[in-house]
Nucleic acid binder design. Sequence first.
DNA 1: AATAACAAACAGAACGTTCTGTTTTTATTT
DNA 2: AAATAAAAACAGAACGTTCTGTTTGTTATT
Lengths: 236, 236
Amino acid sequence: MSTKLYERFMYGKRNRGRRFSLDNSRGCDVTEREKQGAKAKRIIYEATVRCLDKYGYAKTSTNRITQEAGVSRGALTHHFATKEDLIVETTNRILRPTVNPPKEPPPNKGQTPEDYELSIIKSDLIRLWQHVVNTPQGRALLEILVAYRTDEKLKERIKPDLILWNDRMQRSILQNYILSDGDDSRFERVWQVARVFYRGLITHDAFLKDPGELDTIIEEFVNMLAPMMQRRNPDD
Amino acid sequence: MSTKLYERFMYGKRNRGRRFSLDNSRGCDVTEREKQGAKAKRIIYEATVRCLDKYGYAKTSTNRITQEAGVSRGALTHHFATKEDLIVETTNRILRPTVNPPKEPPPNKGQTPEDYELSIIKSDLIRLWQHVVNTPQGRALLEILVAYRTDEKLKERIKPDLILWNDRMQRSILQNYILSDGDDSRFERVWQVARVFYRGLITHDAFLKDPGELDTIIEEFVNMLAPMMQRRNPDD
DNA sequence: AATAACAAACAGAACGTTCTGTTTTTATTT
DNA sequence: AAATAAAAACAGAACGTTCTGTTTGTTATT
């Protein structure tokens, strides 16, 4: 390249074009490019969740994710500078919809009001297992949480998110399920017991000959927990 | 090495010496070499447990284990042909002492018999957490169980051991405890609920600002479970 | 003398990251 | 409206490191 051309090039470069980064400096309307990038990120995120669920944390390499997502290596590194960035963002996307689980309308019954209330709480507890914890997202989260335990850098980055999510979760649950004269702080603990139990349950079929045994254990647990969530006076 | 020496060495190697493997073909007396080998294996096993606990499954490489154990790479590969062999044997050694947890003598009290019984059961449940699950061995086992979920080859090799251990555990517990209403199969489930809960608890402090919150959750759980349980009369 | 026990070098694959180059979209200037 | 600069969105090669497993060599025990 001749000096003249180069100087003209650099001159133009310095004085023309955009001075600021793009990413939505306009205001609100979504450009084609933003849509494209968001879609790619979503595809990669979904592939990451699938890989964590299928192969586990140890074998979820960036190579495998690109294969699963059907994108190039460059695409992944463009959107996620490091693997840690990818895991952090994946964690946040897993937690996002979990905060407010969709509420099912209670089915009609010919039961006494007490039995009816109990059945609703039981079905809610079972739903927590079937539609939140024991899902690709839930199992992927377990993989991340176990890695979290021994990965200080990851811990540093996602701990605030997890605590925030926990608080929001508790508040959301309290809004929907607590009885007016109940002990809130105790109820929060009971609910956390349920979440802890379900997390442990993901790895429990290792000990069982028949996977169906899981259901009976869940049933036992639900029968144990549901009546407590109905107690109106915990102080007697 | 000169050719002559080398040939003499190889010649001797091929045509002389013992034809069968050593490891205790004599009968009973333990040789120095056997002791040495067993000690090396124990050191490697203990280092593996420490690595799984400290670094997690993904970052527990054979290299790291040799460093942690203070042995050479050759020593490790000599005793454990593959990494999978090492993990399998480590799993078995973790499970070995857990089957029959040491029983603590009950402390004296000025309580009613009912309260006394309840307090013993509660302390047993807390001990399960403090001295079995939340230990380097217990946390290492969690790492292995999570890897197990997505590793078909590992699953194939240790599944029988886990099921066997589970059965022995249940029988051992049944010897000491029964359910308040005397239903054994239901009690087995209740006890499994406790184990599942504790396993989940290992990863739960990720959600908590203050690690001390764990204790209150444990307390809640124990208060929930203990009244359902009853110690078996040792005279039957 | 044979071999268990250990040590160390090595091979090949896979890992995460970095880098260079190309195409496409967007914003600004003319 | 056309031209142009800049940045986003890829694609893919290459890098150095680390991994597991193999092989070869040495020492100690029987």
